[in-house]
Nucleic acid binder design. Structure first.
Lengths: 193, 193
DNA sequence: GAGTAATGAATGAATGGTCATTCATTATGG
DNA sequence: CCATAATGAATGACCATTCATTCATTACTC
């Protein structure tokens, strides 16, 4: 196994164990075992468990942003662009339940709160500020979406998506393409003027 | 301190410590200390830490449901009833940040997932099924709200509320009565036909 | 190119710390 | 004075992290 493979194996094992059992029941010993390395090896690739967890989160975030950008065109009308992003995110989560669970765990842990706070203070704008931010700000100035603080627009758009994804992944609802579309449109309804 | 007071003190200490530091950094030793009792005393009132945590959750849930019912009238029109419930919940969370944080911690822990699963299987209907369920089901049959599975209606209605409450409590937005009203109405927009 | 030395990645047993829980002992109050 | 409540030191389990040691690979020398 190459060096890069080993690092990857450790990250993958962490993803699986944390997603399934939470941070506290994902001890380094188990992560190492599942990755097929010794416990000490983790520390050759990551300074400590903390760093491992944060690095994994950042890599997932990057991957998601890249995925959402494919097929996103700045020329389409607001509603379409919005629905593309929002239903794309939902589809991604459904296709990657482990990643979704990991991200949720992260967001609700002390790591995640600190991480988010840094981000909000660094730039004075909310999360994955790249595409979403632009879309929302433009929408507000052009008076197609409600005139509310950016953070609240994010909450209205993504709050339901997270909640729906969780319920699908826990098996409480079975989503299909039609439902996903309807949900994305409902989110749009809550934003549009 | 009376027996009841002691039990109450333990629950309160648990609420505070779990809300602030999470389950893992709320050891029994600290809970006991903050409650002004010895560690062993906890086990005279609760079988173990698990039970303590679940009992506290159930008491909070009961309290919230009771609060929301005050001022709720079955005669008002849909939109008003909905906005009453949803903005009431948001106001409750904002007024009780510790409770909100505790509930969120709980929902995202193995306790919470198991708890929810039992609930969903017990009755084949989603959460606080009392008032909300009735309102939503009635709304669907009367064709005032979208014809979507009940679980999804819950997600659309409460997903944003949770998200908004979290951002307020973390200090990322300062909500006032006007904003709360606007948010509740936006949630309604996503449900209404 | 064979033999030897140097390197540094990988290992996993050992360490020190933390935690939930127990229980022998002590305090309380009726 | 007895029954019951409360105590908190002790226990055993578990965990993140360390580090002396092993081992495979590379570099060097003749």
């Amino acid at each position: 196994m190459s060096k890069e493979d080993k690092r990857e194996a450790i990250l993958q094992a962490t993803l699986e164990l944390v997603a399934e059992h939470g941070f506290h029941d994902a001890p380094c010993s188990l992560i190492a075992e599942r990755a097929g390395v010794a416990a000490g090896t983790i520390y050759r690739y990551f300074e400590n468990k903390n760093e491992l967890i944060v690095v994994l989160y950042r890599e997932l975030e990057t991957k998601i942003n890249a995925t959402l950008l494919t097929g996103y065109t700045l020329e389409a009308p607001f509603r379409e662009r919005f629905v593309h992003l929002v239903s794309g995110l939902l589809q991604y989560f459904i296709a990657s339940p482990l990643e979704f669970k990991y991200i949720e765990q992260f967001h609700h842990s002390p790591y995640g709160v600190a991480f988010r706070r840094d981000k909000m203070l660094g730039q004075d704008e909310p999360e994955g500020c790249n595409i979403y931010c632009e879309l929302f700000k433009q929408g507000v100035t052009q008076q197609v979406i409600k005139d509310l603080p950016l953070v609240l627009l994010f909450d209205l758009a993504f709050g339901p998506i997270i909640s729906v994804a969780r319920n699908h992944i826990l098996g409480f609802i079975q989503l299909d393409a039609t439902l996903i579309q309807q949900i994305a449109e409902a989110c749009w309804d809550s934003l549009k003027r």
